[in-house]
Nucleic acid binder design. Structure first.
Length: 489
RNA sequence: CGGGGUAUGGCCCAGUCCGGUUAAGGCGCCUGCUUUGGGAGCAGGAGACCGCAAGUUCGAAUCUUGCUACCCCGACCA
């Protein structure tokens, strides 16, 4: 079995690609830039979906579904929105194929659509066209809707999970009667994302707003969570947009106030995608494979029997049955790997590659002593534990692992966050990776120049942070606050 | 869209410069026996219109021309 990974040190992006493929998460498909998400990878997405979906429902949202296809004319209604997405839209122009005289399948030119359809890169336009019909009065507000969907963005260069031509995500779209309420919603949802990233994925994130250059096409303000990967590059893990009345005006969505006045509706939208799986991988995993936090791991505990012959396996299986019941009673997902086609060593390596947080091994010696060997994925430590009360012990261990994974990522981020005050230092620091906190004069021009010279962009402008007088790292103009620069994915 | 590269069993690849008849090897797969506390060993076996199309030649994976696909680097991006 040649499942050796490239090491992170040797080639970080090769390591990432190897890992995604070898851990059976996803693979490239016949269509350039589009991936097949394999069952194990999809199981991780399902865990994420289920937690997020619950969080959305708890904050008052409902799921709905809007169409994949968007009439081209909808797109032109919001100027900056078109500008942002026009270059990466897939377009449907025909609706029929036929056989030509050589028997080849060709597009039937007679079946041209009257109006071309855009495959959604995001759904603001079709949703706001719909909301016009839904919203008449202040009594219809707020509208708090989310959808789980696929979207298509025809990217030049793609990478499994991090950037694919088609990806899965959720997009929340809300409509409010006041600016304050919409702002509150946008902030609330970025907070939900931050909680999810930190408490479930174990990925610490910076929360804040985007600079105008990085803002969503059509938004007044973009809130985001930003995580730091092990190679020192930043990854935008989730965004929440305050859209003001831009879409309401573009799609003429007005409501009547209590005072019987016509007003435009205030909007937000927010989303996270399968890119989170990329974040999860790059935040925690090591040269042995994936490291999954227990709260997101499809399998939390794997049990590997060590046996010679059928009788021994049966004996061990009996013991394992008890353990499985005990773990399941505590809602721990457990897999008993009783394949007789592979040796224990092979299984150890394979489950490590797949990031299962806890592995139990039971052999004849354990049966004799009433013990089980417990190995944790995050630290690779092994110890022998008495089987008595094993459910509770594992439960506690999973909590510890979840916490340890987060703490480790947090201290990595702290060790790789720098305050920098001179341009020379800025250049060399950015080159080495990490979050670089520096003063910026607040202009787009300066941000662009910095990007051209260093490839670093402003990842996030922190909110809820004390202001600090300073001088822009590039122009020397005055600045009231440090912003976070980094090279990013 | 610019620049560079690659295309050979499921995967990784040798062979291509200098054409020669069973296209080599490793991984994986199948069968059997022995193994099983950190990626097993031995024996046997299956599996390839050498990216596609023309051409040169007695003979093409190898030479020529055209095409296609994919990868890497840049511009663009959740």
């Amino acid at each position: 079995m040649a499942k050796q990974l490239t090491s992170r040190k040797e080639n970080y992006s090769q390591w990432y690609n190897d890992l995604v493929v070898k851990a059976d998460l996803a693979e490239n498909s016949a269509v350039r830039g589009s991936m097949v998400i394999k069952p194990y990878g999809y199981a991780i997405w399902e865990k994420m979906q289920s937690v997020l979906d619950t969080m959305f429902k708890e904050t008052g949202h409902q799921n709905a579904y809007f169409p994949l296809f968007i009439p081209k004319s909808f797109f032109s209604k919001e100027a900056s929105h078109v500008e942002g997405f026009a270059k990466e839209c897939a377009v449907v122009t025909h609706y029929r194929l036929k056989n030509d005289k050589d028997g080849n399948i060709v597009v039937d030119e007679d079946a041209k659509l009257e109006e071309e359809l855009i495959v959604r890169p995001t759904s603001e336009t079709i949703i706001w066209d719909t909301y016009r019909k839904w919203i008449q009065s202040y009594r219809d507000l707020p509208v708090l809707v989310n959808q789980w969907a696929n979207v298509v963005r025809w990217e030049m260069r793609t990478r499994l999970f991090l950037r694919t031509a088609e990806f899965l995500w959720q997009e929340g779209h809300t409509a409010h009667s006041t600016e304050a309420e919409a702002l509150e919603e946008a902030e609330k949802m970025v907070g939900v994302y931050a909680d999810f990233a930190e408490q479930f994925m174990g990925v610490p994130v910076l929360q804040g707003i985007k600079s105008p250059n990085e803002r969503f096409a059509g938004a007044i303000e973009t809130y985001c969570i930003e995580a730091l990967m092990q190679d020192g590059k930043a990854l935008q893990a989730g965004t929440s947009h305050f859209l003001g009345q831009n879409f309401a005006k573009a799609f003429d969505v007005k409501y009547v106030t209590r005072e019987n006045k016509q007003e435009y509706v205030w909007a937000t939208s927010w989303g996270v995608s399968t890119r989170l799986i990329g974040a999860l991988i790059m935040a925690h995993s090591d040269d042995n494979g994936l490291v999954l936090p227990p709260k997101i791991a499809p399998i939390q505990v794997v049990i590997v029997p060590i046996f010679k012959g059928k009788e021994q396996l049966e004996l061990i299986s009996e013991k394992v049955d008890g353990i499985v019941k005990e773990l399941k009673a505590r809602n721990i997902s457990v897999k008993f790997d009783d394949r007789d086609t592979h040796k224990p060593g092979f299984k150890f390596a394979e489950w490590e590659l797949k990031g299962v947080p806890v592995r139990l091994a039971i052999g004849p010696r354990d049966i004799e002593n009433g013990t089980v060997e417990v190995a944790r994925r995050d630290t690779l430590e092994k110890e022998s534990l008495q089987i008595t009360n094993i459910g509770e012990k594992i439960d506690n261990l999973l909590v510890q692992i979840q916490d340890n994974i987060f703490q480790k990522a947090l201290s990595y981020r702290e060790d790789n966050t720098y305050n920098v005050d001179t341009w020379d230092e800025f250049k060399s620091r950015v080159e080495k990776g990490g979050f670089v906190r520096a003063h910026w004069d607040g202009t787009s021009e300066t941000e662009k120049l910095i990007k051209d010279k260093t490839k670093a962009t402003i990842r996030v402008i922190p909110i809820d942070e004390p202001l600090e007088e300073g001088k822009c790292i590039f122009t020397g103009n005055s600045s009231k606050q440090r912003v976070v620069f980094a090279k990013s994915y």
